[in-house]
């Protein structure tokens, strides 16, 4: 990303199911306001939602950061939490370590990271056991890729 453009930050609380999804929803509204292509908005919103849910389901607290420039979008999700023990395993569809409570509420289908990967153009994951995780997802604004 050449010019940083605009940066918006949204904090996310672990275990706060009532507010879950609000950060992704705000990101979606912001992108709509600046007139990003509807297909791109959809990809970013879905990826941001999954990232937000991962923080709610697994971490203590964290935040989503949206960076917008004219050519690129970036969503960063960083949290203080347990970290991901095996990233490759977590990338597999259907794999989940979500709690029974989360599953009872319909979450934890094991599609979070796979969906984030599918929706973004590039994704990098840094994770440290018992410290936390940082996921960086980049999206091309022009390319309306089908997810």
């Amino acid at each position: 990303m050449t010019t940083p453009g605009m940066v918006l930050r949204f904090s996310v609380e672990g275990g706060d199911y009532a507010a879950a999804g609000e950060a992704a929803s705000k990101i979606k509204k912001a992108l709509r306001k600046i007139g990003v292509d509807a297909g791109v908005i959809r990809r970013v919103a879905i990826a941001a939602y999954e990232a937000e849910m991962n923080i709610v389901l697994h971490a203590l607290r964290g935040r989503l950061i949206l960076e917008v420039a004219e050519d690129k979008l970036r969503v960063i999700a960083e949290d203080e939490g347990p970290g991901i023990p095996d990233v490759n395993l977590a990338m597999q569809e259907g794999f989940s370590t979500a709690s029974d409570l989360a599953r009872e509420m319909g979450f934890g289908a094991g599609m979070g990271l796979p969906n984030m990967k599918k929706c973004s153009d590039t994704i990098t994951i840094e994770t440290t056991k018992d410290r936390g995780t940082k996921v960086v997802m980049n999206f091309d604004i022009d390319d309306d890729g089908v997810t």
Binding site: M6, K33, I34, G35, V36, E70
Partner: peptide, 22 residues
């Protein structure tokens, strides 16, 4: 699509405007 909610036709200008809104 009816882009009535967009801040500007130009993406760059729209980003600046959203920053001002924030």
């Amino acid at each position: 699509a009816i882009p009535a909610l967009q801040l500007d036709k130009d993406l760059g200008v729209a980003i600046k405007k959203l920053e001002q809104v924030e």
